[in-house]
Design a protein around this nucleic acid. Structure first.
Lengths: 219, 219
DNA sequence: CCTACCGATCGGTAGG
DNA sequence: CCTACCGATCGGTAGG
């Protein structure tokens, strides 16, 4: 804050204290998020996260109040990326099936990017405090509704045959969420390749349709 | 309280002690497995599992040596059901794509059945002891290999266009595994309906193919 | 199968 | 940002 005048001196000093704080906080979230994905929230101790960042555990508590709060931010991050993917899809097209494909592909690309390491998708809600659970559950439901509406729109536009949007969304969201559990940056496939392959799988799958058309309790 | 036991005494008296022991052990596995699925392994205490069975915690340790062992058996159970599904598929056909469809549908039906409550699929391996991890990892790899071979067979038989079996299997197995996290016996869909819908999604999805043919590092 | 209890792990804090 | 430490939870056991 009052240190801004030191700005000129060293390379690292070009960051304001605020920027530095946020950089470190993000580094903490990334490191923790990766560990949570790989080993699970409860199998990851704060000591391990600290060691990965070359500091001791108490240092982490300068950036985050509790371990649960870290997990909460990782969840929020996952939804922020989803919102970003939605934004991209909405700007690109008005056709339901097109929006669906772009949203899915963009979301996969974001989840497999460096930024995406913060996102945690497979941890049970019970690991969060009740207050945080409510917030995450609402965002989940909103997103789920968005996807089901998109599927319904694609049906209405005759892009895909009648089917139960709930089953459809459950199907491809399961596939998508699971990427975070096996995706490896060093792996044979880039995020973009995975995104395109999944986009095709999903689109072709839905075009085949399912025998049970949507009924009143489906949306 | 003590009247309940009288009732049980007659009903269970026809069972040998061994059968009784196994029934109770299975009840324990089912109750624990369901809780693990819903809330996660570490968010489920032995006290809770015991309470759900109307006994106290120490009673459970007559049937299982440790909590980790319960989780291990839940994992084993998941693979036992997979083997059973494979058996069904192998008996029904010799065509790759047919075996694939039957295996998937059968597995989903088993996972959504009463028996399937024992199966745990989304818990990180780190929750298990190192010895158990090795065993589960081997079974996972064997099953993964089986599925990739099946996809490759379907490609060779021209049932589906050339594609990377690793991506393909990752895709539909992700979708399948996730069913256990949202499936509700009281829900709108029966296990068979889900199985058939997923079978179609997958088959249609793979028939569309992916642009990248398999390369040397894909199997 | 229960009452009573132990002991390790680990999240979080005090104080500097 | 570190050293030292506390306290709650919870898996597991003793003994009956």
């Amino acid at each position: 804050m009052s240190r801004k005048k030191d700005k000129a001196r060293w390379a690292t000093a070009i960051m304001s204290p605020d920027e530095l704080f946020n950089m470190k906080k993000m580094a903490l979230l990334r490191e923790a998020g990766q560990a949570f994905r790989r080993k699970g929230f409860h199998n990851t101790s704060m000591d391990e996260v600290a060691a990965a960042l070359n500091v001791t555990k108490p240092a982490l508590y300068y950036y985050m109040k509790t371990k649960q709060e870290i997990l909460f931010e990782c969840h929020q991050f996952a939804f922020d990326l989803a919102d970003q993917a939605k934004q991209t899809a909405w700007e690109a097209s008005e056709i339901g099936i097109e929006r669906l494909r772009i949203l899915l592909e963009k979301y996969i690309e974001l989840l497999t990017s460096t930024l995406g390491s913060c996102a945690v998708l497979l941890e049970p809600l019970s690991s969060l405090s009740p207050g945080h659970q409510k917030i995450v559950l609402k965002r989940f439901r909103d997103f789920d509704r968005l996807m089901k509406d998109l599927v319904q729109q694609a049906i209405d536009e005759k892009s895909i045959p009648p089917q139960d949007p709930r089953l459809t969304v459950g199907f491809f969201m399961g596939a998508l969420l699971h990427i975070t559990s096996w995706y490896d940056v060093e792996g044979a496939r880039t995020g973009k390749e995975i995104a395109q392959a999944y986009g095709r799988f999903v689109l072709n799958g839905l075009k085949g349709g399912s025998p049970e058309p949507a009924n009143s309790s489906d949306i």
